[in-house]
Design a binder for these strands. Structure first.
Lengths: 99, 99
DNA sequence: TCTATATTTTGATAAATATGAAAGTATGAA
DNA sequence: TTCATACTTTCATATTTATCAAAATATAGA
């Protein structure tokens, strides 16, 4: 009696959080900068590339991280950020459900 | 000398508007109600299904419509809403670019 | 005409989010 | 130690967004 593996397009809070995180031009640019970086980039590289003041960038990175879209790793004086694919594909799955 | 048709994942304001429109639990539920409706649904049907006060619903529908995610059509006393696939797949295209 | 229905607009209030200066923390080099 | 770098946190202010009562509009019967 196992349930059919139907595409169960149930929208939940974590989807909302991820969409909220991306629903801001600066954050979308940060996210795509990291996508294009194909790996890690330290906060400073993002700051330089996009010309965002430190505290503002830090705040946006925190939001993206808490939404599960990116992750961070500290090494020496740097904090390296990178994209978390899982959450991105989770969003794609949700949106392609309606095609 | 035509440019290669590369997946040009450039995030722009219309993407932000669409993401903003979806980045709210009530609106995401409205959107998926319309997806599941497989066609049109009058505002009243959405209101009854989700239990949202009229003015609030109206406001959210307006936001989704202005973001290009849904469309409306008036017939007699009813206003029928339905999903606009184009914008949805535009978002999917943007997000799948990074896979 | 009057009344009921379907939905929107207005407008007021509350809540959430964005921004960046200033101060704080952590690390490595001199 | 001290200094410089890399980044974050705190905090105050400004802006945007959410909510829904009340009023408005539009249409279809009776």
């Amino acid at each position: 009696m196992k349930p059919l593996p139907l595409a169960k397009l149930e929208a939940n809070e974590s989807h909302v959080e991820a969409l909220k995180a991306l629903a801001h031009l600066t954050r979308l640019q940060i996210f795509f900068f990291l996508v294009r970086a194909r790996g890690e980039a330290p906060a400073g590289a993002i700051q330089e590339a996009l010309g965002i003041p430190g505290p503002t960038l830090s705040h946006h990175l925190d939001l993206l991280r808490r939404a599960g879209l990116i992750q961070s790793r500290k090494e020496e004086r740097y904090i390296y950020y990178s994209v978390r694919r899982e959450m991105t594909s989770e969003l794609v799955r949700l949106l392609t459900a309606c095609c």
